[in-house]
Design a protein around this nucleic acid. Sequence first.
RNA 1: GGGCCGGUAGCUCAGGGGUAGAGCAAAUGACUCUUAAUCAUUAGGUCGAGGGUUCGAAUCCCUCCCGGCUCACCA
Length: 493
Amino acid sequence: MEPEINAIIKSRLKKLEILYEKGIDPYPTDFKPTHNTKACLELLCDIEKKGLEKSEVIYSAGRITAIRKMGKAIFIDILDEVGKIQLLARNNTIDEETNELIELLDIGDWAGVIGPVFRTRRNEPTIQVNSIKLLSKSLKPLPEKWHGLKNVETRYRQRYLDLIANTEIREIVKQRDNIIFELRKFMKEKGFTEVETPILVPIPAGAMANPFKTYHNALDRELFLRIATELYLKRMVVGGIERVFEIGRLFRNEGIDSNHNPEFTTMESYEAYADYNDVMEMVENLFEQIILNVKGTHEIQYGDNKLNFKPPWTRLNLRETLKDKSGIDFNLCGDVDELKDKMSKMGIEVRNQLTWSGLMDKLISEKIEPDLIQPTFLTDYPREMSPLAKPSKENPNIVERFEGFIAGMEVCNAFTELNDPIDQRARFENQEKMREEFPEEEGDRLDEDFLIALEHGMPPTGGVGIGIDRMVMLILNQPSIREVITFPQLRSL
RNA sequence: GGGCCGGUAGCUCAGGGGUAGAGCAAAUGACUCUUAAUCAUUAGGUCGAGGGUUCGAAUCCCUCCCGGCUCACCA
């Protein structure tokens, strides 16, 4: 960044100089708070119960967010991770060093305070300053105290300013942590083992998405950032880790909008001996428990909608629902051109280079998904669309797969996993063929190493992938994924 | 990528052909219970960038950059 020399920064650099002249280290390391701001308030309650007016001397610290000078008395607000408290420095209670230092403090500085907690005549909990220590000198001005930081671009590019100025954003960071903590707790209580699988992979398989490419020098080979954790987690199931999950980042080289970031977090889990009905139950219980523990209720507000997470979720058979909404029965409409024709007549714009499965996906997302506001499972997808899912016993053209939708957003995707290695190879080969035929479309990739693993035998397994960012958006009522990802991807300036 | 909206002081925002504005923040001064402290004074600008129209452009036109919403794409 170019050195901006405006008056504010000049004045602060000048103060820095004076500090050095006085022998005060503006970046010391030896201050240890005994009480954060919340503990100060609790301490005050305690001593007031005992009929005392002033606590013992404590050490507290935080960022200065306001300075109100009243002549020989100065009020200073400090903000720490858990809250705010005001300091009162009066000429006759502070030591000589503090008297000199206090003139050199600015809004934005980190400061430590030493003194007793008491309550002012206006009833405000306050730390009486015996002494103040500068802990870190700030050279740049903070956003405005009253209106905060509103410029969305600055909020995303300099999230630390957003965190300082807008308490709701701190709350999102904390609540996101809570949600992931509850998610992990839920999985562990169910006996799942948390693992970490490769992010750098030789074949970006396990989903249909455009990968990021990179290169490893020593191995002299191209590598990709994973687009899914699926195939590695299944390898673990093959190896006998019967309940396994991973919470981690996936990377997809695709568009950015309020529901999509190029890197995003998912939780994928695989459970031996489960099928997709078991997984549906697990997902319902998982959402219920997390929301109950984080929000204390089954019902949450998301935008204009009140969402109810009491199980069971609505289950909609995809074929029936699609017939209702579009008149198309996918079992009787296996021809690409016929499907394309029907969709065009319905007013759905369709590109030329589109596979049957691409068309079907589009049809579903236009005709069904927007209406799925309350938590809903759409079940039993066409086999063609789901190369990793196991066919249904009744109808081999259908697979045991479901997707979960909330507020019109896809939040999870799950199947009874395909564990027949010969079928799986055929499905992959079909995907490869489609990728050749329709180069513009993403298909899943054949992962030979995974096929070999399957050939060694994977137990019957049910698996699911859940989009964590979207889950956090829903629970915290945020309209954009950029509000729940602390550092969203933006163009460079 | 298309459409719409936006980018003016560190921050929040006015101003939409005729000398660049306010509040907060900053500086100086007054004030020993303030909390959006108050009062007085001062300073602070490449009006996103570049081109054009005009006697004169923050303002009108064109191109570009950045962002938001939206549509398309993308599971």
